[in-house]
């Protein structure tokens, strides 16, 4: 990406991470990706009562090239899936995805031939937001959690380390089926 990628791990890098995280989360611009009912709640979140502008996010960029965040709001049908992927690919890094609603998180109530069972089959998702549809306040909760995640994103050497760690964990992680324990 830039100079920061080649900084060695250390105090300087962590300071740069904090600053970069703060800057990135402060003006996260969503791409217009409303599909179904959740899109209406997303628009309501942009409305005056819930006001997404207090997070600097009221500019829903039509062009994915100018957007950081893709809020997949609504059910993703088989026909729409390549479009989702194309829009995601057109977004420049750094980019994040919120799967808003149960339909984009997991297929929701529509477990059938027409709906992709979770948009994470197509794009990597950072925050899953359940709800049918989730209230605008729930969307804000998801956005704030995403802000925290962005604030803590590592850069450069730290990121490479982190990715290697996560990958190692993910390769040996058990599936949901194999997990034991109570409901949570």
């Amino acid at each position: 990406m830039g100079l920061e990628e080649s900084l060695p791990s250390g105090v300087l890098l962590t300071t740069v991470e904090k600053f970069a995280g703060y800057a990135r989360k402060g003006s996260l611009w969503p791409a217009t990706f409303g599909l179904a009912c959740c899109a209406i709640e997303m628009m309501a979140a942009g409305g005056p009562r819930f006001d997404i502008a207090r997070y600097g996010m009221e500019v829903f960029r039509a062009s994915p090239r100018q957007a950081d965040l893709m809020i997949v709001a609504g059910r993703v049908s088989q026909k729409m899936a390549p479009v989702v992927r194309q829009i995601y690919d057109q977004m420049p890094n750094p980019k994040w995805v919120i799967a808003m609603g149960v339909c984009s998180s997991s297929g929701g109530m529509f477990n059938n031939y027409a709906i992709v069972q979770g948009v994470d089959h197509i794009v990597p998702v950072d925050i899953y937001l359940p709800g049918c549809p989730p209230r605008p306040e729930m969307l804000f909760d998801a956005i704030l959690k995403l802000h925290d995640k962005i604030q803590d994103t590592k850069i450069g050497a730290n990121r490479r380390e982190e990715v290697a760690e996560l990958e190692a964990v993910a390769l040996t992680a058990p599936t949901t089926l194999e997990l034991k324990g109570l409901m949570r």
């Binding site: 599909l35 049908s77 088989q78 026909k79 059938n112 027409a114 709906i115």
Partner: peptide
């Protein structure tokens, strides 16, 4: 057809 959900089925 980009939002076809198969609700009827």
């Amino acid at each position: 057809g980009y939002l076809h959900t198969g609700i009827e089925k």
